[in-house]
Design a protein around this nucleic acid. Structure first.
Lengths: 212, 212
DNA sequence: ATATTTATTAACCATATGGTTAAACTAGAA
DNA sequence: TTCTAGTTTAACCATATGGTTAATAAATAT
């Protein structure tokens, strides 16, 4: 079930580029370094990817595919096995965290995409979900709406709720160091992540206010 | 009560630099352009700010000061006038949105700071709240904890809740276009923001689940 | 008046870096 | 064995760009 390793030059370049871009950032990345990391001649990078911007774009589609493919499968499985609405949402949050956690360094690449003005991301996503309307996001929004219709959820705004969930997940990976800023010390990384996931799910489901 | 306009060369450079960095991004910014925008000789930029990184750092402390000063005052006023816990939190969310909304282009600068590895932000914040422990963040965390003690709030994790609030606020400003990605169309910007604020407060306070 | 410190300018510069090119090598087709 | 299309290489290159410098002007101190 794993992506089979493509040993072609093009793939070698792409993999190397992901490593370098994730570590050095979009503008910190040197095309020479990408070539060196891939163990090939720099001209090959241009041969297969035309230029730096295009290389970045192909990286984007690659990591989006990797990250969302996995979530998508698991969410749609939860839905088709008839899990209840709250569990579908809770699990999707869990999947999302796990997805980010598997490749935390991808965050940097996404940040760079966001930072460059929001032109590339929609295009990259389009390339990932080519014309099909299936995305983890749309699944969740539909589940929220359905849960509202069935009086399981309060009449929240589904899209705004989705945006909130995304924000709560994403900010954690924006930087681990943000935690320091909030005055928290981490003894055990895994435990902290686990706690964060539970905390997000609890807040999303129950809110802060004490129930009377 | 407004910051008085400083017409000194140093300030002219700083203001111009904020404009250029916000628009072009950290690495897209050319020192020549900063000088031109400020209407002074490039050497002056180096005279007052040594180098590009240091200029960026001073920009960071400047915008942090601007953004948080305002929130800080309003939150501490709410606390001292004895507002109830839920209102203090709700208002702080509102202030935070308003603060971002006043200078939405600052987001790009913050993104660039985050993207450059999380070294500068803590230092910049330190410079802002010099050694005093007063920050909007700490006020809110304390209010949450106090609300829990008084059985007004459920036993949520205060710091994780704070992180969540920050994420929900910040992601909105990451990019307006993110909304397109979520399949929403905006007729009225102000109305949409207003809706977003209400939606976040509602979710934070009440959660999704229907109360029995 | 004079010395000294601070502010400002125009002209320079080193070099890093994205991108090119022309030639050579390979492998499969005819 | 030749032809052709796809790969790969080493050597180049143009130039954008962060940063410098040396000379000068303006304040400020003595």
């Amino acid at each position: 079930m794993n992506r089979q390793v493509d040993t072609s030059t093009k793939d070698k370049i792409l993999r190397a580029a992901i490593r370098v871009f994730a570590q050095k950032g979009r503008h910190g990345t040197r095309m020479d370094e990408v070539a060196q990391e891939a163990g090939i001649n720099k001209a090959m990078v241009y041969y297969y990817f035309s230029n730096k911007d295009n290389l970045f774009f192909e990286i984007l589609t690659t990591i989006f595919t990797e990250m969302y493919q996995n979530s998508l499968h698991r969410i749609s499985e939860d839905i088709s096995t008839g899990k209840n609405h709250a569990d579908i949402i809770s699990n999707s949050i869990r999947y999302s965290f796990e997805s980010y956690n598997k490749n935390p360094h991808y965050t940097r690449i996404m940040i760079d995409a966001i930072s460059s003005g929001m032109d590339e991301i929609p295009k990259a996503l389009e390339a990932v979900y080519d014309s099909s309307q299936l995305s983890p996001t749309s699944y969740i929004i539909k589940t929220i709406q359905d849960g509202i219709d069935k009086k399981i959820f309060r009449a929240v705004d589904p899209i705004n709720t989705m945006i909130s969930i995304t924000g709560m997940t994403f900010i954690y990976f924006l930087s681990r160091n943000i935690i320091k800023f909030f005055g928290m010390k981490i003894d055990d990384e895994d435990e902290f992540l686990d706690n964060r996931i539970k905390s997000v799910i609890d807040l999303i489901m129950n809110g802060m206010l004490m129930r009377q």
